[in-house]
Design a protein around this nucleic acid. Structure first.
Length: 254
DNA sequence: AAACACCTCAACCGCTGTACC
DNA sequence: AGGTACAGCGGTTGAGGTGTT
């Protein structure tokens, strides 16, 4: 009945990935694409579970990943999207091609939260902290503001989908919520807050199941990726990958 | 130089919705 | 139809790095 188990965890390696493992995984995916994560470790010769391979690929090895810190503009976008979407990091990540949900989540938890606190804003509600304390003293129930959780935000706020704005799943917040944040961001960047919600965002560019169909491998992008990876990985041990790049370049020419 | 505190982020865990048998 | 695996997600952890005393 049902499917075969993803992996028996017995004998599976855990913890940080070695360069050799990265090489094996990248080598395999570049040559074969991703069809089924369960079979990837076995076929790639890795003692990892498919889940671990998927995570490593998505968060670290994927060729279209953008490296380096977040710009202030990106941070502002994250803040605003978070005010609309809550902790739905994967949804937020779709607005940042080349960034992972994990990366955005980490950045939020380590940097942006602090930045907001320094500005006297509650990271979850974006309301001034003094005002939040006021709510805590008994006026909580008079407002639709709430301690924001990934689920709570949708339970407690009256929301509905935007009409024909080009983006699915961004809820329209009814009422005053986020007013302060929108004002603050607009002032800081001299931009209209709604511009972040325009249809100019590219969606769903983060997943390309088959490398051959990946637009990031076209033109200069492959070289950019190689340059990026150069800074991170020890390419002395990666000589066999040169064959893969030739393979990809040949594939583009076909 | 050593000890401690704090920070960052890669990786894991557990849950959920969906697909498969 | 129901049980199970898979893929994906968000929350959390902890090792390693950096700053401070």
């Amino acid at each position: 009945m049902g499917r075969q188990p993803c992996c028996d965890k017995v004998g599976m390696k855990r913890g940080p990935w070695t360069i050799e493992e990265d090489h094996k995984l990248m080598n395999f995916i570049l040559n074969n694409g991703i069809h089924c994560w369960r079979t990837v470790p076995k076929l790639a010769g890795l003692l990892r579970c498919g889940k671990s391979c998927r995570l490593r690929w998505i968060n670290y090895l994927r060729p279209d990943l953008k490296r380096g810190g977040f710009t202030e503009m990106e941070e502002d976008q994250i803040i605003e999207l978070h005010s609309l979407l809550g902790n739905r990091w994967s949804k937020i990540a779709t607005h940042f091609p080349g960034r992972t949900d994990n990366e955005i989540k980490n950045h939020w938890n380590t940097r942006i939260k602090k930045r907001l606190k320094l500005l006297g804003l509650d990271p979850m509600t974006k309301k001034p902290i003094e005002q939040m304390e006021h709510f805590d003293n008994g006026e909580k129930n008079k407002t639709h503001l709430h301690p924001n959780t990934s689920k709570g935000s949708e339970e407690n706020i009256e929301i509905k989908s935007l009409d024909n704005n080009g983006i699915e799943d961004i809820p329209k917040i009814e009422g005053k919520i986020e007013e302060n944040m929108v004002t603050w961001i607009s002032q800081e960047n001299n931009t209209s807050a709604s511009s972040y919600c325009s249809s100019s965002f590219s969606l769903d560019e983060s997943s390309y199941p088959f490398v051959g169909q990946c637009p990031y491998f076209q033109g200069d992008s492959l070289q950019q990726w190689v340059d990026n990876m150069d800074c991170i990985l020890s390419w002395d041990t990666f000589n066999p990958l040169e064959d893969d790049f030739l393979f990809l370049e040949n594939k583009q020419q076909v």
